[in-house]
Structures are given as structure tokens and as C-alpha cells.
Deep mutational scan, measured.
Amino acid sequence: MAMNGTITTWFKDKGFGFIKDENGDNRYFHVIKVANPDLIKKDAAVTFEPTTNNKGLSAYAVKVVPL
């Protein structure tokens, strides 16, 4: 089920960042999981599918909501 969130941290040079989800949890995401990576920036609103990996909470099918 899709969730909403906000990008809180973005490491462009490393290709990953973190999203604060609607429950207040931080989720890892990688640029290859983003549909529109050219719009990635700190504080951008996103929708995504929540999941977990071996390191904890993460996100896939991430879409940055255009302003």
C-alpha cells in the first residue's frame, strides 16, 4: 500500500537518501528506485511503497510529487 513522505536527506554523489514517512519513521531509498530522479531534493514530497531490507525500513517505487 502506497505511503506519503518527505525526503529528509539526499546524498546525490552516493545515490541514496532517506524519507520520513507518514508515521514519522525514516526509510532508506536508492536513486534506481525513483521514477523521476531529476526531481529529487531535500524536503520534496514523495509517494512510495514501503518495504524492509536487511538494514531496516526502506522504500521502492518512489515518485517525487512535482510542485
Rank of each mutant, 00 (worst) to 15 (best):
M1L: 12
A2H: 12
A2P: 13
M3W: 06
M3N: 04
M3V: 06
N4Y: 12
N4I: 09
N4E: 07
N4A: 10
G5H: 00
G5T: 01
G5P: 00
G5Q: 01
T6Q: 08
T6D: 03
I7P: 00
I7M: 01
I7K: 00
I7D: 00
T8M: 10
T8C: 10
T8H: 09
T8A: 09
T8L: 10
T9W: 13
T9A: 15
T9V: 14
T9N: 11
T9G: 09
T9E: 11
T9K: 14
T9L: 14
W10S: 01
W10Q: 01
F11T: 03
F11Q: 04
F11L: 06
F11N: 08
K12L: 07
K12Y: 08
K12S: 10
K12R: 09
K12M: 08
K12W: 08
D13S: 12
D13G: 09
D13H: 12
D13Q: 10
K14S: 08
K14V: 06
G15T: 03
G15V: 03
G15E: 05
G15K: 08
G15D: 05
F16C: 05
F16M: 04
F16I: 05
F16G: 01
G17Y: 02
G17H: 01
F18D: 00
F18A: 02
F18W: 10
F18N: 04
F18Q: 03
I19R: 00
I19K: 00
I19T: 00
I19Y: 01
I19Q: 00
I19S: 00
K20W: 07
K20V: 09
D21P: 01
D21W: 02
E22R: 06
E22F: 06
E22H: 06
E22T: 09
E22Q: 11
N23W: 08
N23T: 05
N23Y: 10
N23E: 06
N23K: 10
G24A: 04
G24Q: 05
G24D: 05
G24Y: 04
D25Q: 11
D25M: 10
N26P: 05
R27G: 00
R27S: 01
Y28G: 02
Y28C: 06
F29E: 00
F29T: 01
F29G: 00
F29N: 00
F29M: 03
H30Q: 09
H30C: 10
H30Y: 08
H30R: 07
V31K: 13
V31L: 10
V31E: 07
V31D: 05
V31Q: 09
I32H: 15
I32P: 04
I32W: 12
I32E: 14
I32S: 15
K33L: 13
K33V: 15
K33W: 15
K33P: 03
K33N: 15
K33M: 15
V34T: 06
V34P: 03
V34Y: 03
V34E: 03
V34I: 04
V34N: 04
V34L: 04
A35G: 08
A35W: 12
A35N: 09
A35Y: 14
A35H: 12
A35K: 14
A35C: 15
N36H: 06
N36Y: 05
P37T: 04
P37K: 07
P37S: 06
P37W: 05
D38H: 13
D38V: 09
D38E: 14
L39A: 10
L39H: 10
L39Q: 14
L39I: 07
L39K: 11
I40T: 03
I40G: 00
I40A: 04
I40Q: 01
I40M: 05
K41T: 10
K41S: 09
K41P: 01
K42M: 09
K42S: 06
K42F: 06
D43P: 03
D43R: 11
D43Y: 15
A44V: 09
A44N: 04
A44K: 05
A45Q: 12
A45H: 14
A45M: 12
A45V: 11
A45D: 07
V46I: 05
V46E: 01
V46S: 01
V46C: 09
T47Y: 07
T47M: 09
T47R: 09
T47F: 07
F48H: 01
F48I: 02
F48P: 00
E49R: 14
E49Y: 15
E49C: 15
E49M: 15
P50F: 04
P50D: 02
P50L: 04
P50S: 04
T51A: 14
T51K: 11
T51Q: 11
T51L: 11
T51E: 12
T51S: 13
T51C: 14
T52E: 12
T52A: 12
N53G: 13
N53T: 15
N53Q: 07
N53R: 10
N53V: 07
N53F: 08
N54D: 12
N54F: 10
N54R: 14
K55T: 07
K55Q: 10
K55A: 08
G56K: 08
G56Q: 07
G56A: 06
G56I: 09
G56T: 07
L57K: 09
L57E: 04
L57P: 07
L57S: 04
L57T: 03
L57G: 04
S58W: 06
S58N: 05
S58D: 04
S58F: 08
A59Q: 02
A59R: 01
A59W: 03
Y60M: 14
Y60G: 12
A61Q: 10
A61F: 09
A61M: 11
A61K: 13
A61I: 05
V62W: 02
K63R: 12
K63T: 13
K63Q: 11
K63I: 12
V64M: 04
V64A: 04
V64H: 02
V65C: 10
V65L: 14
V65Y: 10
V65E: 08
P66E: 13
P66H: 11
L67M: 13
L67P: 14
L67A: 14
